[in-house]
């Protein structure tokens, strides 16, 4: 192998390892914050509210993010997020969409957004981490919150 080819291949390999390592080992909290910011861009959310959410999660005895997102879910989320594009998608896209929705869901359930009946014109504030064992009866889509919607 010519020296130039070897150096080129070594360069690609090093870059690949560096990028792969970044994706695999990126702090999940920071990654999830990025997802939330992106997917709630249409809402009036101060990024400080997202920080408050993650602070509360890390301080609570029951870490909802650890519970909802085991290691393999986190990896699937990150690899899809960075690799997928308009032309190519990794397998298990349905799972990726579901997990991504779940990140946003757990954050928004921990705010006043759904209590305000999804009114996108109102500012969104962190309230408390969504946990039915701390605050039961808290499904914001139930008949308690929408008595007029059901039969």
């Amino acid at each position: 192998m010519r020296r130039r080819t070897f150096l080129r291949l070594a360069g690609f390999a090093t870059a690949g390892i560096a990028i792969g390592g970044y994706i695999a080992f990126q702090n999940f909290e920071k990654f999830a914050s990025k997802i939330i910011l992106k997917d709630t861009a249409s809402l009036k959310i101060d990024p400080a509210e997202i920080d408050k959410f993650f602070k509360a999660v890390s301080e609570s005895k029951f870490n909802v993010m650890d519970d909802l997102f085991p290691f393999h879910h986190r990896q699937l989320l990150k690899w899809h997020y960075y690799i997928d594009n308009g032309l190519f998608s990794l397998p298990y896209k349905v799972n990726y969409n579901a997990y991504r929705n779940k990140i946003v869901m757990i954050f928004l359930l921990s705010t006043n957004f759904f209590i305000n009946r999804m009114d996108e014109s109102k500012p969104v504030y962190f309230t408390s981490v969504y946990d039915p064992y701390q605050i039961p009866c808290c499904n914001p889509f139930s008949n308690l919150f929408y008595p007029e919607a059901g039969a």
Binding site: T40, S42, N101, L109, F114, F141
Partner: peptide
Amino acid sequence: FNEPIIRSEPGKWR
């Protein structure tokens, strides 16, 4: 199922 699932799309949350 009546879990509080959502879709992350403005205006289409539920």
